[in-house]
Nucleic acid binder design. Structure first.
Lengths: 261, 261
DNA sequence: CTGCGGACATTGGACGTCCCACATCCCATG
DNA sequence: CATGGGATGTGGGACGTCCAATGTCCGCAG
């Protein structure tokens, strides 16, 4: 992985770098791409840019840093992969919004890779998601203004209704499921929660097809989600914990069957 | 090996497009780099490779896919950034181990970027970490074999001792703190927990210097960690929850002060 | 026989250049 | 006044070439 050794900053490179000129000095190697990455991050931080702000063009970067275009491009691609910059073909580069897309890729890939063996990455991921959601739902109950709960939870109620409707005519769409878990924790006002859970959710659903058919019916799924909603509505912490456990029971059994078969 | 520029018959469609002519084909643009990424992932999955296994060389990839070296390299750099492949100069490429390094980069960067404003990424991150650890410690209590608790928790006890010793002579080293949070949940046998928590921990400690001085003394820190250990040892769920809350109280106050200042 | 050093092959790293694709803006043309 | 077609600027793709790092292996010295 890319290490960024500290003690390099002093000493040798004070200023411009002549393209084509190689420094034969025996020392560590802050690869060109790494240099560019650090430089771009530095520019963003130093200039106090925010997500969406325009960044220097490729040409400007190659000139300012005295580095070839390919290296610049490699670095930018990496920064794009980790969601730090946003590249738009024919338009320019911009400070990126946090997307966790790279995180999803990594988790999804390694989960798929270890699906059949004992390490079972996906199972571990689900366990973490369960722990997280179980804790979050309690925090949600604590944080809700007890004044007008139904109004605050109205969006959730709508999703539950939608879910029930879909279950009645067939299967619950992934989008509806995702929407539930996204909306539920929104009152916590912690956008990272939504993003992280979204990432977990996405990994699960990318690999869902590789798992067998679910043990529970769509109606069961709708019911467990409704139970979570009701527990939050009534502020019943124990019921919320139990409902969350129920919700993940189906997932667990599906995974367990995979491990056996 | 000599390269024959007489044209390549392999699936490289260099069909000319007339400038100014809009291609009516529905807009799908699988960029070269993306193609290579998918191809490499596919190779790993299809051949059932595991972490550490060797991958085709750059030259082999460019030939097999009929794609230029730069594109191949860009793709591989990205895959390296998200921890899917591991590139070792002068040796070869290998299937990567999960590292979450890209995730850490993304979180650390966006946290630093939003440090001064209201969005306060870091605070949200800490909140998630607290929820996670609070839930995990309860799960840990449930999962421990009640037979020989002291033996199972011996490593933790040693770290606590180390922590106390360090606190007595000055400051607790980050490594010791990290070791505690890493070892504590090891009995859960969920390696992802360690990695995810490690990522959170690393983000926090990368930005720690930008926060002010801590409110609590090293002795306080050692004490809160000891309380967590004791709660697990005695299986006291309420005490564990409280100890975890205490543990994060210092972090929270530090963050709050930043928001005010 | 042992071990150490250096040649060699292999593999990644970097660069410059050329051309393509895409987006935007402006101006000419109807 | 509306519109379509450059002109321009930006990223995307590819190629060829050279450089540097790493591992292997063989031969020479002890």
């Amino acid at each position: 992985m890319a290490f960024h050794p500290d003690g390099w900053s002093t000493g040798n490179d004070t200023g411009r770098r002549v393209p084509g000129r190689r420094v034969p000095v025996a020392g560590r190697r802050p690869s060109r791409a790494t240099e560019v990455q650090e430089a771009v991050k530095d520019i963003i931080l130093r200039r106090g840019l925010v997500a969406g702000d325009p960044l220097p063009t490729e040409s400007e970067l190659m000139e300012e840093l005295g580095i070839g275009r390919n290296s610049v491009r490699e670095a930018l691609k990496v920064l794009q992969a980790v969601g730090i910059v946003d590249i738009r073909h024919g338009f320019g580069m911009f400070v990126g919004r946090m997307s966790l897309a790279g995180f999803v890729d990594e988790l999804a890939f390694h989960s798929r890779m270890t699906m059949q063996d004992e390490r079972n990455h996906l199972g571990h991921l689900i366990e973490i998601r369960e722990v997280l959601e179980s804790g979050l739902v309690l925090r949600l109950i604590d944080s809700l203004d007890s004044g007008d709960l139904p109004a605050q939870l109205a969006p959730i109620r709508d999703v539950i209704e939608q879910m029930r409707a879909e279950a009645a005519v067939g299967a619950i769409s992934p989008e509806t499921d995702r929407l539930f878990h996204d909306l539920l924790y929104r009152p916590l006002r912690n956008p990272l929660v939504g993003q992280l859970l979204g990432a977990f959710w996405q990994v699960y659903h990318e690999l869902r097809d590789d798992l067998g058919t679910p043990d529970e019916s769509p109606a069961d799924v709708a019911r467990t989600h409704r139970d979570i909603y009701r527990a939050v509505l009534t502020g019943d912490r124990a019921a919320a914990t139990e409902a969350m456990r129920e919700h993940f029971a189906g997932v667990r059994s599906r995974l367990a069957r995979l491990a056996r078969g």
